[in-house]
């Protein structure tokens, strides 16, 4: 495994080249697909951002969240309320949603510091179950629109670009997703990423090495919620509608399915997971209304037994095998 510096530099350059190629491919994709498919892919990108955020918290840092649908909802509602009530342009709602969710996540993360493993899962589960009711609460109805929710208008392409609204939103989301992924990768590759993994695997040793566990954990919660909120805002703009009943505990569970199936503690896993939770239910829906969830459940358990690294592990393994030159052991 020990590669020479020059080797790793080329490998790195290749990686960036490959990434740029993927983004370029993704950018031309909408011009060959129907508007509905483009809309679906926009949601995939929004989910991918969410899953990256959840993976930072659960995969890398080991804090289990079963309630990330709540932060998704907060991001979505922030965007919808700003656009509907204050006429804020859609692109400005993203930093707002990010800021609101960062604070909300950090504040929820503070008491959550005292909870370990199972109990954190319990507390976040409660958050996920309770949130739709909170959104329906009659004293917030002036803002949230109660059970009816809020309808928002899809933005048109700016500067007279020759793309329709769906294609523009897709490209916009792709840009945001690329930015969030670059930020995320840099965060996880460096010192902070190592600290997160250390806290997950050996909290006591990490503390002894000078990692401020409380600060890191609460901040991870905040950053993770921030990613989720940005995804939620993009999702809301794409769907053009927010309502309490789209943000039940099952949304949070879908996110959990996404990171488990995509690959825990892997960046690319977020994309596989997002594709999975967007397209598998669509296919399974044709069998029965309940089938997508049955499949989710089976995949959750099967992944834990058969491929704990998810799709990312399988793809990564295959890639390694392809690249391996004959006669050279890795």
């Amino acid at each position: 495994m020990a590669a020479l510096p020059t080797d790793s530099a080329t490998a790195r350059r290749n990686q960036w080249l490959g990434l740029a190629l993927v983004v370029l491919l993704a950018a031309v994709l909408p011009f060959f697909l129907s508007n509905y498919r483009v809309f679906q892919l926009t949601l995939v990108l929004a989910y991918a951002i969410v899953l990256l955020g959840l993976n930072m918290l659960t995969g890398y840092n080991g804090q289990i969240s079963l309630g990330h649908g709540a932060f998704y909802a907060i991001g979505a509602y922030t965007a919808a309320i700003l656009m509907d009530k204050f006429g804020v342009p859609y692109w400005l709602t993203l930093p707002a949603a990010a800021a609101v969710c960062l604070v909300a996540g950090f504040l929820f993360g503070l008491p959550a510091l005292r909870l370990e493993g199972l109990y954190l899962a319990l507390a976040t589960f409660a958050l996920g179950v309770a949130l739709p009711q909170l959104l329906k609460y009659k004293h917030f109805e002036h803002w949230t629109g109660g059970v009816q929710g809020i309808v928002i208008i899809k933005p048109d392409a700016p500067f007279g670009l020759p793309v329709n609204a769906d294609q523009w939103l897709y490209l916009f989301t792709l840009g945001v997703a690329a930015l969030m992924f670059i930020l995320g990768v840099n965060l996880l590759r460096g010192r902070i990423g190592r600290a997160l993994v250390a806290i997950r695997d050996q909290p006591i040793a990490a503390e002894a090495m000078g990692v401020d566990i409380s600060l890191y954990k609460a901040l991870t919660f905040g950053v993770s919620a921030m990613y989720t909120g940005v995804g939620g805002a993009l999702g809301a703009i794409a769907v053009q509608f927010v309502a309490p009943d789209s943000f039940t505990i099952f949304l949070s569970i879908a996110f959990l399915v996404g990171i488990v199936v995509g690959g825990l503690a892997s960046v690319s896993g977020a994309i596989y997971g997002a594709l999975f939770i967007q397209f598998v239910p669509n296919i399974a829906d044709q069998i029965s209304k309940a089938a997508p969830w049955a499949i989710y459940g089976v995949f959750l358990i099967a992944c834990m037994f058969l491929m704990p690294g998810g799709i990312a592990q399988v793809v990564g393994g295959a890639w390694q095998r392809l690249r391996r030159k004959p006669g050279k052991s890795v």
């Binding site: 079963l66 099952f250 825990l264 029965s288 209304k289 309940a290 049955a294 459940g297 358990i301």
Partner: peptide
């Protein structure tokens, strides 16, 4: 703990959807 929680959530989802599938909603 994560593996165990994921399995529990998997069971939750399976029983919920099985009930909906067999006995309707």
């Amino acid at each position: 703990v994560l593996a165990v929680v994921v399995v529990f959530i998997g069971l939750l989802v399976i029983f919920n959807s099985l009930a909906g599938w067999i006995f309707t909603y």
